[in-house]
Each structure stands twice: as structure tokens, then as C-alpha cells.
Simulated scan of single mutants.
Amino acid sequence: MSPILRRSWSALGHLGSVRAVGKTTAPLPWPSGRRRDLRTRFVELYADLDERLERNTTELRLDRKPSKRDLGFSRANLLELNRDYVMNTDGARRAHAEDLIERHDHVRIDNTRSTPAETAALILRRMPQ
């Protein structure tokens, strides 16, 4: 089985963030010393801003992420991040991250109206095997 690394990456235009993610895509050492041919794959999930603001107030999000419980701060922070950083590879602004992403398998999925289960099934269907 291949290792899976899940990473939330929100500042696609921040060069330091790109470098940090780039280090995680380097070949992994295996205990036996043999290198396996593994591929890095990026799954980019995005939703429109209204949906993201709404999700930030759901009971599950507030339960799992204490930083979201101050709703005023959380809303302002999300709006500020959305204004100041490239959050997705939508073609509107090229991000530093795109040079790294383009060297790997990458699927971009709008999950604005999808349940987590529907999104997971779509990832499996669209990701190259």
C-alpha cells in the first residue's frame, strides 16, 4: 500500500509554503533502502466563498476546530485570506504552487454542492490510476 499524506494547503501563492510542500513530495526513504516508484498526487477541493463562509459556522466545524468558534474573527480571517492569497488554481492569478502541482497528477474538484461521500467518490473516479 502506498503512503498517504493529507495536507491542507491554503496559501498557494506563498513561496515558503510551496517549498515546504515541495519537500513532502520528494521520494520517501524505505526501511529496506529500496526506492519504490511512488507518485505524488494533488487533489484540489474548492467551494465558492459563500459556501466556505457557511461551512465555517457548522456544528461539526466548530466542534473540530476551536479556532473557528470566534465566529466574527473566523469570518474576517477567511475573507482576509481570500483577499490576500491565491487559494485555488482557477486561472485568475498564477500561483507559485502551480509550478510544483503541474509536475504531478492533479485533479480540481468543485465540492460546493457535494457531500463528503460524493466528493470522495468523484476523487476516485477522476484521479489517474
Rank of each mutant, 00 (worst) to 15 (best):
E80H: 04
L12A: 07
P31K: 11
R41I: 03
L5C: 13
R83D: 06
E98M: 10
P3V: 07
T89W: 09
G72H: 05
G16M: 05
R19S: 03
G91A: 03
E102W: 12
I4Q: 12
D63V: 00
R6K: 12
P66T: 01
A47W: 14
L79Q: 06
V86L: 02
G22D: 05
H106L: 15
E51M: 06
S17F: 04
R83N: 01
I109D: 10
T25L: 03
E51I: 05
I101S: 02
T57Y: 08
A95F: 05
Q129F: 00
K23P: 00
N111S: 15
R126W: 06
R108T: 07
M1K: 11
R61L: 02
R6I: 03
R35K: 10
A121T: 13
P128S: 15
D84L: 12
S32A: 07
T115A: 08
R39F: 02
S8K: 13
E44W: 09
T119G: 03
S114K: 11
L45P: 11
L15R: 13
M1S: 14
P128A: 15
V43P: 15
D99P: 00
M87H: 10
I4W: 11
Y46H: 14
S17N: 12
R61H: 10
Y85M: 07
D84P: 00
R19V: 14
T115V: 08
R125G: 02
P66F: 13
S74P: 00
S67C: 09
R6T: 00
G13F: 08
V21I: 15
T57N: 05
L45T: 13
L38K: 05
P29G: 04
D63L: 11
G33E: 06
A97W: 14
V18L: 03
L122K: 14
R6A: 11
E59Q: 06
E80A: 04
F73W: 14
E59S: 08
E80Q: 07
D70E: 06
D84C: 01
R19N: 04
R36A: 09
P116E: 01
A120C: 08
I101A: 12
E54K: 07
R103H: 13
I4T: 09
L12P: 07
S67E: 15
T112D: 05
R6Y: 11
S74N: 12
E44I: 08
R103P: 02
L81A: 04
R34Y: 08
D50G: 13
T112S: 13
A95S: 14
R93A: 00
R7W: 02
F73V: 00
D70W: 04
T40W: 08
S74K: 01
V18W: 01
N111I: 12
R83S: 03
D110G: 02
F73S: 02
F42L: 04
R69G: 03
P116C: 01
D110K: 07
R36F: 13
M1L: 11
D90S: 10
R103Q: 14
F42T: 09
I4C: 15
